[in-house]
Design a protein around this nucleic acid. Structure first.
Length: 546
RNA sequence: GCUUCUGUAGUUCAAUGGAUAGAAUGCCUCCCUCCGAAGGAGGUGACGCAGGUUCGAUUCCUGCCAGAAGCACCA
């Protein structure tokens, strides 16, 4: 790879100068006028050598003899060293992008087995946009890891027991015609006034002592899970493991009970004191002896431990950040969970928010995943009416999913996503469909080339490399960085930039009937491959037409 | 009160301590006899406040201000 080659040459030169410990980067400069790669190495070395940045840059440049593929090295600005690639080096990258289907793959997680847990909806409740968000991020991180050489297993942890189930069953008993999601909302609303009845059902679910409740529970669970499965297909996720709270509950309870020195008695409850580690106290068994979410998560750790992996990543909203620290801290005090606790990582993301405030499925003011998908699908379908497409239904669904996932994956983690329903229905500008559209346009161009029998080759390559070519070659670095930081948004930003650059090139050049049709087709093919790969890493489909 | 996260154009988002702070959207102009106008070209417009570290701070540190989340028997 070009960047790493430059990096090692710079490092060697720094050592020669006696500034081997200088911390520097080789990166894409802000503007093409500053070359294809730039380094701040001289600025970093200046401090160590006690020289001015300019002097250090001169010294450093003199030490860098020649790098294969680099045509010109310049000093600019405060003391940056800029590298300009040779025409043939750029050509080579374009050819790789166009023809090599491993283009963009990295090896930073090579031969690692990684389990990623995400989505985590609750049966009996609705699949809301928070789950859509978790799914988009989790799926993308999973794919990023796969593109970096890891073997990834996908896990989904779902709450199939607890008070919410009783509320839904009670709601269903009042009106069997409603969906489970609606039944839950109704049950939650009526909980205060029918507390005893619903609590009674909760007990029956737990004991499995009532045939009517059992039947409702079994059919409700089955219906919910089948429904979710349909959504996973639309979203492009396939899970390897499903974990349920009904399994983790007894295991968690046993773990807590077997460690009285870790989980001490307090007001009749069993708690873990996190204060010694800078955390806070959390309850693991209630004063009634019931396991809380914390205890269940210990059970989950034990279940996961039976699977094979080097690292386990759990993806949740940031509201669980502090909670998770306490659970992991507690797990490290339990002998049989020590190893897995050390292998577990928590990745948190911001929350879906509205201008009106926090949504809650108890209040019933959620936008469900389905309703959002449906609305967006309709908008997309309307847009496609002027075009005659074979499978408009499926494509509009792909566009809708692309729009949602893009809006989640375009920003860095940790920040809440302000969800604007109206804006999310717009498929223009900085959006998933913008990328998908550029991609279909590239494909359409390639179809035209095939009909006109224009082969993709370098026979008529222009002397000057275009900005599109010079942008293309940075794709592998973008993927590497995104994978390293588990931040898909770097890929999103890049893919948007690439689509924009391609659109601009397309608008200003005649590709098939211009001066360099063959190279133009090659370049189109390289762009198409890169856009498709980028979209695939984001978990967004790249339809052939739209 | 304590802990964590976040403050960048009107709005929604970018930018490993470096070069003229990038997009999108909005608003104002243009561009389909031409390979897909869900497009392209141009204009408008922003680093919460105050210190500190540094050759250099939107970025790191401290304080303040503002918003969000979490902090014992819910999940």
């Amino acid at each position: 790879m070009l960047r790493t080659q430059i990096e090692s040459e710079v490092k060697k030169a720094l050592k020669d100068m006696g500034a081997g410990e200088a911390v520097f980067v080789v990166e894409r400069p802000d503007s093409l006028q500053h070359g294809d790669f730039a380094t701040n190495a001289a600025l970093a070395a200046a401090k160590i050598l006690k020289k001015s940045p300019k002097e250090a840059a001169d010294l450093l440049k003199a030490k860098i003899l020649s790098i294969e593929g680099v045509d010109k090295i310049e000093i600019a600005g405060a003391g940056f060293i800029n590298f300009f690639l040779s025409r043939s080096a750029i050509k080579k990258e374009v050819e790789t992008a166009a023809t090599d289907n491993t283009w963009g793959n990295t090896f930073i997680y090579e031969s690692k087995a990684i389990m990623v847990e995400y989505t985590d909806p609750n049966p009996f409740k609705e699949f809301h946009i928070g789950h859509l968000m978790s799914n988009a991020i989790g799926e993308s991180i999973a794919r990023l890891l796969e593109a970096s050489g890891a073997t990834v297993t996908r896990a989904n942890y779902q709450g199939d027991v607890g008070l919410h189930v009783a509320k839904a069953i009670w709601g269903k008993m009042q009106n069997p015609a409603t969906t489970w999601g609606e039944a839950y909302v109704y049950g939650a609303q009526q909980y205060e006034t029918h507390k005893e009845e619903i609590d009674g059902i909760n007990k029956k679910v737990y004991e499995r002592s009532d045939t009517e409740v059992n039947a409702l529970y079994d059919s409700g669970r089955k219906t919910s899970l089948a429904h979710f499965e349909g959504l996973y297909t639309i979203l492009g996720t396939k899970f390897d493991f499903y974990f349920f709270e009904s399994e983790t509950t007894p295991i968690g309870r046993a773990l807590v009970e077997s460690c009285p020195n870790v989980f001490v008695e307090s007001d009749g409850a069993r708690v873990f004191r996190g204060e010694e580690e800078g955390l806070h106290t959390r309850v693991f068994l209630t004063s009634q002896g019931l396991p809380t979410y914390e205890a269940k998560d210990l059970g989950l750790l034990k279940l996961k431990n039976e699977k094979n992996f080097d690292t386990s990543i759990t993806i949740t909203a940031s509201e669980q950040k502090e909670y998770f620290k306490v659970v992991l801290a507690a797990a490290k005090h339990i002998t049989e969970l020590q190893t897995i606790a050390q292998k577990t990582m928590h990745v948190s993301h911001g929350m879906m928010r509205f201008t009106e405030g926090k949504m809650s499925s108890r209040k019933g003011n959620v936008i469900t995943g389905e309703s959002l998908l449906k609305d967006l699908t309709n908008v997309a379908k309307e847009k496609m009416q002027e075009r005659e497409l074979a499978d408009a239904e499926k494509i509009s669904e792909q566009v809708a999913v692309g729009a949602i996932k893009y809006s989640v994956l375009k920003q860095g983690s940790g920040k809440d996503i302000i969800f604007d329903a109206e804006k999310s229905l717009s498929l223009e500008g900085d959006s998933g469909p913008y990328i998908q559209y550029a991609h279909t346009r590239a494909l359409s161009l390639l179809r035209g080339a095939k009909e006109a029998s224009i082969a993709a080759d370098t026979s008529d390559m222009p002397k000057e490399a275009s900005s599109l070519e010079r942008l293309l070659l940075h794709f592998p670095d973008v993927v590497r960085r995104a994978a390293k930081e588990l931040e898909p948004h770097y890929v999103t930003t890049y893919v948007t930039e690439l689509a924009s650059e391609f659109n601009s090139w397309y608008a200003n050049e005649r590709i098939l009937a211009g001066n360099y049709p063959h190279y133009g087709v090659l370049l189109t093919q390289a762009t198409e491959q890169t856009l498709a790969k980028g979209l695939s890493i984001l978990g967004i489909s790249a339809p052939e037409e739209m």
